[in-house]
């Protein structure tokens, strides 16, 4: 049996677990458990990305989703309650309507998507093929994605880095990491 046939069953298992974790995140009231479940959700997502051959996305998802955002959410939990309040009963149906409509639109769009791994799909056909052919001649970097991000779109990546850095600074100022130490020192003095 071909391994591509086998891995799709693993995909089903991973997606089933993703669904279960998603429902648990919605249902649980203990915010701490929710933070840990979002970390687990990122781990599962990244495992699924690996099986879809999107290794670089999986790398980012594991580092950002499971690593940094878990820590940031814990920092945010310092400033808020440990338990979430149950939502009012009346609001459920409107939200469900919006979610159902968005889901139906997504399902409606599925037939227009290119087949998984299709070499003729728009993402692979035009510029993508040029990149794949040009990278070995232009830059001596083995990974095409890295070459595109850090060389062909270098300024774009620089802008992204600036945005992410200032966002991280803003979050740190908001959450106030390290203020505890300052307060303790002032108390000692």
């Amino acid at each position: 049996m071909n391994h591509a046939d086998l891995t799709q069953y693993l995909d089903y298992l991973l997606i089933a677990m993703l669904l279960a974790v998603g429902f648990a995140i919605v249902r649980l009231r203990n915010l701490f458990a929710v933070v840990m479940l979002t970390g687990v959700y990122s781990l599962l997502c990244a495992a699924w990305f690996v099986s879809l051959d999107a290794v670089d996305v999986a790398f980012t998802e594991a580092a950002v989703g499971a690593g940094i955002s878990t820590v940031l959410m814990l920092g945010a939990m310092l400033l808020t309650a440990r338990e979430s309040e149950p939502a009012g009963a009346g609001r459920h149906w409107a939200a469900f309507g919006v979610v159902a409509a968005a889901g139906a639109a997504l399902f409606f769009a599925i037939p227009d998507m290119p087949v998984y791994g299709d070499p003729e799909s728009p993402a692979n056909a035009y510029v993508g093929r040029d990149y794949l052919e040009q990278v070995p001649h232009d830059i001596s970097i083995p990974n095409v994605v890295t070459a595109v991000l850090s060389s062909y779109r270098g300024f774009d990546t620089l802008g992204e880095v600036v945005v992410v850095f200032s966002a991280a600074l803003g979050v740190m100022l908001l959450l106030g990491f390290g203020t505890g130490a300052r307060r303790r020192e002032e108390g000692e003095d």
Binding site: L43, A46, V50, V55, F59, A62
Partner: peptide, 9 residues
């Protein structure tokens, strides 16, 4: 490549 991801994990 998946081994690198596992290491990171």
């Amino acid at each position: 490549d998946a081994i690198d991801i596992a290491l990171l994990y």
